[in-house]
Amino acid sequence: MENKMDDLSTLWVYLSASPIMSIMVTLAAFLVASQINRLAGGSAFLHPVIVAIAIIVAFLTLIDMNYQQYFEGAQFIHFLLGPATVALAVPLYDHLERVKQMFWPLMIACVSGIMTAALSTIVIVVGMGGSRETVLSLTPKSVTSPIAMGIAEKIGGYPSLTAGLVLVTGAIGCVIGPLLFKALKINDHSVQGFTMGLAAHGFGTAQSFAVSSVAGAFAGLAMGLTGMLSAFILPLVVRFLGV
């Protein structure tokens, strides 16, 4: 009996050290979260990514596995974010004519959006007495996570905190965006997509692809453009304001 227990615990140690555990948990949690979201009528309040994260955190706490151990396996899923970002060039190419026509409006809207996102965050957090680390980790919240992490590191925030808050921002954008478009009668899919991609990066892009391929292409464009321009603008804004 004791031998058997020993075998089992050795097996457990072996399995939890191999990537298969984290990958399985991630896929299973995401499937369950998608199902929950479907049952809730697709409400962005229960965004599959946020629900999946909650399930995984609860599970890891339960089996006493820390984030580093988890990420050792989950990095294989995380890695695919790179090629997926490159892949955004395809929908962008498909709608290149529209993008060319609207080039200057898009650029002006993008810079204004970036400044609004950064300044409103800084004003609110400083105004409510948040810590300096909180301000700096929150400032790049609308930027797609790989770029946001780089910016946070550069201006003195916590990159891993930023990564998480970027996701929460994305989910919030998915809730507020469609309501706002309805209230303001913004019906054009290119405008909706670009706005979602700017404020809610990959989440907004994923949601926009579900609306239409035009919306998705403009969201992807906004996400890439916001990321690149933010990498230049945000460090300057933070230095200028002396945060």
Binding site: T26, V49, I56, F71, A74, I77, G164
Partner: peptide, 10 residues
């Protein structure tokens, strides 16, 4: 959307 999960668990 799935690809964002591992970073978010952080």
């Amino acid at each position: 959307a799935l690809l964002f999960v591992p970073a978010g668990v952080g």
